[in-house]
Write a protein that binds this DNA or RNA. Structure first.
Lengths: 247, 247
DNA sequence: AAGTGGTCTAGACCACATA
DNA sequence: ATGTGGTCTAGACCACTTG
């Protein structure tokens, strides 16, 4: 069934979480849990606001939250519908997270080098003085014990307290989150080339297998630098998947 | 100067263009034109709404439009500020537009093949019946007369009226826009490999120069299929640049 | 004509950062 | 204490789609 989805919602007006956000989360859950199927029509916002005892703008804001993520599609005069699964976008992850648990292989990380250094090029990318001391990290990424990528990162002084042990145990962005880094905007450049001699040795590949070279610089929305990365991936069995959006 | 930016705005209440959008456009222009510099504080929304004779929610909506694009940063208790140029995001273009005018080289396109065909794999990617007849196009992309990419695209019947001549003259997405395609959500996968014999011939490269293989499927927000693409780029001097966002 | 989403108003109160 | 943005309300009118 499920021709017209009416989602059960429980709101807590005492909670510090905004009402529109509580509503948005529960609507999102209804869709991702499959309680509302793609193509189903959604309860209109006037009815929903009356049913939940919320004002129309508040309900509207929650619904728009889902529209922005591609979970709902609205058409004037027609109504609100659950979008096809293909257009869900929930941000462009995949390249910022250096994990590939999605591939079903067991990932691990080995820190090859760790220290404070002065790298003018990285500092420049981060818009810092050329002589700024940065935390430089070189990691080897493995999947099921097999080398997959060499990851070099440079972090500004603000995040230099990240330890070698933390990096062995957790992903970089997870650690940065603990340092108060909420969201980032990253400029990323992807190229292909043949591996250097050193890369061939570390990644255990032949000189005929190309590598994917990713260069990335990330900033907080305020413009504060977060990290500069130079990553090199084996190209066999590895692809970079993205969800793009064009308006 | 320009410590506190107060933008001159002219609103037309008779226009069918919404007030919040008129305001957003003029605020955007002030920033991109450099009238408001990065780091400048922005007029607060209460003052702006009084100055312009708009309600606060309307002004708020316009400002949020710019925040979503990364042009402004807001901090509770502090104010609204013009963001550093590095975090401007205005959509993740770069890979959907098959031009590289940005590199300063003169681009051109040559249509190698054009016709209606049945390609089950492409049809499947577009979520159409395997026997659907698609418009199949194979183009060669050149920069200053030098081969740069082989681009194969498959389009659903709805867009099959695009002609060979139109493809020689304009970009695919520009043509699709005329077909009523406003915004799209695309899933894109990027890989690296060595070229096939055919690719070596067409792109005029050696067997030791890797190519970047991009596979993309695009849908409208409603779920209607737009195109499936298989593009192969020379890797020398070509990179895929992206602006990512992580929340 | 009826029903939908889109825009807009005029207020209210709260949370947070700074002085 | 002040000023900022964040949330929320209760309405109004308009634009679009379908029967």
């Amino acid at each position: 069934m499920a021709d017209e989805a009416v989602v059960q919602v429980a709101l807590d007006r005492a909670s510090p979480v905004p009402l529109y956000f509580q509503l948005a989360e529960q609507l999102t859950a209804a869709i991702t849990d499959g309680k509302a199927q793609a193509g189903d029509s959604f309860e209109n916002e006037v009815a929903m606001s009356e049913r939940l005892g919320l004002s129309r703008p508040t309900v509207r804001r929650a619904i728009h939250h889902l529209v922005d993520q591609g979970l709902l599609v609205r058409q004037r005069g027609l109504g609100t519908f659950v979008a096809s699964r293909r257009v869900h976008r929930r941000a462009s992850r995949g390249s910022l997270y250096d994990d590939l648990s999605s591939q079903g292989r067991k990932p691990s990380t080995h820190v090859l080098e760790y220290g404070i250094e002065n790298e003018p090029k990285a500092a420049g990318s981060l818009d810092l003085d050329a002589d700024t001391q940065l935390l430089a990290v070189k990691r080897l990424r493995l999947a099921d014990g097999e080398p997959l990528a060499i990851m070099r990162n440079w972090l500004p002084p603000r995040h230099s307290s990240i330890t070698r042990e933390q990096l062995e145990a957790r992903g970089l962005y997870s650690l940065l989150r603990d340092h108060g880094v909420g969201s980032v905007v990253a400029h990323q450049s992807v190229a292909a080339r043949l591996p250097t001699v050193e890369e061939r040795g570390v990644l255990k590949i032949s000189s005929r297998l190309p590598v994917i070279a990713v260069s990335r610089t990330a900033f907080e929305p305020t413009g504060a630098p977060v990290e500069h990365a130079e990553h090199v991936y084996r190209s066999d069995g590895y692809t970079i998947d993205l969800v793009l959006e064009e308006n």
